[in-house]
Design a protein around this nucleic acid. Structure first.
Lengths: 230, 230
DNA sequence: GTCATCACAATTGTCGACAATCCATCCATG
DNA sequence: CATGGATGGATTGTCGACAATTGTGATGAC
């Protein structure tokens, strides 16, 4: 995760959907998987050679990533993977809370029985993963659950804003370190959201969803304090 | 607002902050001011010649606009100014409502006396513009008021998401047609939001802000129905 | 020994040209 | 006359090269 590691970062043979979109997604995956960490610099020439495209195409892709918030562009000095401060992370949690509340409210009105069942099943799989201490699976399933709920809301711009916020939060250093005891809390909060949606209670669903994200923020802050204190 | 008008659309001598950012903003202004309307095609060669830059630079700028949601890119077929359907507009209103609620809640806790005073003054100027039937001024001031409140919340990613939603809504055909009688309602809703912020009542401020946007959505829908009926 | 100046290497910004694709038109054929 | 395919123009996709800027290291003056 040192600076200027572009030369070795992109070895993974992702299926590459051609075009700028595919290139952008490929760099995005590389950043999100941690091969390129916050603060790392993106050398345009090296990166383009690595991927096998021209600099012009690479630059177009990078502009998209800039708008998403994954990288910062300093004129005449290049692009670096964005550094997400604690303040930034808190802002992103607040944003996520607002969007998730909105989605839950809409889902309470719009969710089909099939969509609700799918959400319930995802939550069950999360519960299983937690019980078996498969924390990485739990983490992935958790992302999927939230994304699925956002999709159920049927509001594409909100869905995209939420997805962008999640991506930026990936760049926050001190994530992970989930404390197993807290997984049960989180799962029960999911149940509350789903129960409210099943009852078509938009207000309750919204409040539960908002609270869930904000409690997640608090749990993140706790691990931060622990890390600083111990 | 016909198709393929790129050749004459950008005559306005905007102050051009150099770099991709300036180019993107310039095209954005052109679209938002209506010189390029929804569905219009952007000819890369003509546009780049018009602005006085190369196609490569233009394409980088356009990629940003795509991520914002102002244009759609169809592979091998070019970019067109996005068409915002009624469904899209409703989604954007819902998104705005959620973000505006969040901002008002935060502002109730964070707003300084000076910021609140500034918001109050903007609202007064809106009242004056409404009284004098300067509807265009009113419209601009209204945008400024909302943007200022979002800024006061101190949450940059939310602020940007809100700004993007507003820009996309500009592309919605049937906006404008504000009915003067509704301006008073909107102004009083602003007062309610500001009163709640002044009282540091986050819950009331949030509810008032959310209601304000959703009522604005309803008012927009009314003019739509009128237009269809009459 | 410290600081200012200058030249060089590295990287980004910009550009024009070539290749690939799409669309409209025209022509041949049933 | 309708339909399918070929052809040409126009537009987008991609690329490599050149110009401009920045950072770095060496050199010299105080």
């Amino acid at each position: 995760m040192n600076a200027d590691v572009a030369g070795t970062a992109l070895a993974a043979p992702s299926p590459r959907p051609s075009g700028i979109d595919g290139v952008a997604r490929r760099i995005e995956e590389t950043i999100l998987r941690g091969a390129l960490g916050p603060g790392d610099r993106l050398n345009e020439l090296a990166l383009s050679r690595e991927i096998g495209i021209s600099r012009a195409a690479l630059r177009e892709a990078v502009r998209r990533l800039e708008q998403i918030g994954l990288v910062e562009v300093v004129p005449n000095r290049g692009v670096v993977v964005r550094q997400v401060s604690v303040k930034d992370a808190l802002d992103l949690y607040d944003l996520r809370a607002a969007l998730f509340r909105m989605a839950a409210r809409l889902a309470a009105r719009r969710a089909t029985r099939a969509a609700l069942a799918a959400l319930r099943e995802m939550n069950q799989r999360m519960r299983l993963a937690a019980a078996e201490q498969r924390f990485i699976d739990y983490y992935t399933l958790n992302l999927d659950f939230h994304a699925a709920l956002m999709r159920t809301a049927g509001n594409p711009p909100a869905q995209q804003a939420y997805a962008n916020a999640v991506k930026s939060l990936h760049l926050f250093r001190r994530r992970a370190l989930i404390q197993p005891a807290q997984l049960d809390l989180s799962l029960r909060e999911h149940d509350q959201i789903l129960d409210a949606i099943a009852a078509h209670d938009a207000v309750a669903a919204g409040e539960a969803a908002e609270a869930h994200v904000l409690l997640g923020r608090d749990r993140m802050l706790d691990t931060l304090d622990d890390g600083a204190a111990g």
